[in-house]
Design a protein around this nucleic acid. Structure first.
Lengths: 230, 230
DNA sequence: ACAAAAGTGTTGACCGTACACCCATGT
DNA sequence: ACATGGGTGTACGGTCAACACTTTTGT
């Protein structure tokens, strides 16, 4: 070790949004802390960074522990580092956020770890500065929904346009005009229409679409930047 | 101390953009590292976080040390934390960025600390992942120039429209249409025209303007969001 | 008088928004 | 036949981009 300076505990907190396609609402994964201070209180999922571990690997480890998921949308958001933010000691915490397709499996795995999915409008009090983290993440979600195709991280691979619209409605907290939404989303030319119909929510049935990930990645390499402007 | 986990060195690096009004170009503040590894090589200004110090206070301390400035634009950008990023030991580094009005005083203070202002197109090799930090900060600058009035952080309090346009040209790396630029910037109604003229660059002289900070803050409280769309 | 920078308006193309009805099908 | 959700087009207004000439004044 070359440097001679005070060392600090480094933690990762991970804000996980899951979308429940059947209920049509956005949820957040929280867990009950097991250690003092604040044992038993609700917090974002998190953990300490190991000495030989990349931050991004630590975030993946935390996420996989509580959801069983790998290779999903997971990005760094911001770092929280007030000297006295945690009464248990000096901890600098790096906030990540993740978007997942919520299904029963993830509910079960969450359960095993004392974690639970909460509706955004029925959140409990959160420890330390986690409410601030949640606020930041929610803003990020709204902001990103306009500029990147993050909606498809939250929906199953096969989805219908009414489903996609409901997701955007949930994110923005208001109802978008149906015709304009279709026009905009289809004009990106990044949706693949299949000939299947999903009849679970109507007699007529809604066509099933898929997001064209390859095409999007190809375009992105060429500097393309999606702007949904919904 | 309640927690029992490995502790890690936490550093702050600060990417400082300065705009030189006389030369009309953007510069970045770099300094020559004094300690091994990489002693003598160029790096962003930075330092280690003290145990009882808020991250934001640490960033302010670093910035003041090298520029003599307080109370200027200074925001957190991102955190770099690959386990082996620094061969001198495990260091997690939080990147901040700052915008300042560059004048001779700041050049002198920088000099005292072995720091120097570099043109963006004449940068030396940088240590560790600092080139990545610079890239991120440059993108941030371009992106923010469109959505927030950051230009005024880089110009003196009194400025002319030709100066402001040259600044935006420098940020975007291309020349904006003069008439459209004036229309847009004046339509925000956030510039105060004074009756002074600056004749240093022309015989006719250009009117001196000021940014209406109070009005902007007032509007912002009401949820207003500037969108320059230059 | 002339050089050099400051200042000024109009038009056409495109995009966002508002808005109401028909379609397909299971019961 | 009817109820339910899926699907479709148009017209208006506002915003962005392109474009060239006049004004001022120091030398």
């Amino acid at each position: 070790m070359t440097y001679n300076h005070p060392k600090i505990l480094v933690a990762i907190d991970c804000l996980v949004f899951g979308y429940d396609t059947t209920e049509n609402n956005l949820k957040v994964l929280l867990f009950q802390r097991e250690v003092e201070p604040f044992a038993g209180e609700w917090s974002l999922i998190g953990g300490f960074v190991n000495e030989d571990e990349d931050l991004s690997d630590g975030a993946e480890r935390v996420l996989e522990k509580f959801t069983g998921l790998k290779d999903v949308f997971l990005e760094q958001l911001s770092t929280f580092g007030k000297a006295n933010r945690d009464p248990g000691g000096r901890v600098v915490s790096i906030l990540y956020w993740s978007l997942i397709k919520l299904d029963d499996l993830h509910r079960d795995i969450a359960n095993e770890h004392g974690a639970k999915w909460f509706d955004l409008d029925q959140l409990p009090e959160l420890v330390v500065d986690h409410s601030e983290m949640l606020k930041l993440g929610t803003e990020q979600l709204v902001h990103n929904a306009k500029s990147r195709p993050i909606g498809f991280e939250l929906l199953p691979e096969d989805f219908t346009l009414p489903q996609l619209k409901q997701l955007y409605d949930a994110i923005y907290g208001k109802s978008i005009d149906d015709r304009n939404f279709r026009k905009k989303i289809l004009s990106t030319d990044l949706l693949i229409k299949t000939d299947k119909k999903d009849k679970t929510t109507s007699k007529k049935g809604a066509f099933v679409y898929r997001f064209d990930t390859e095409k999007y990645n190809e375009l992105r390499k060429q500097g393309y930047h999606l702007d949904l402007n919904v």
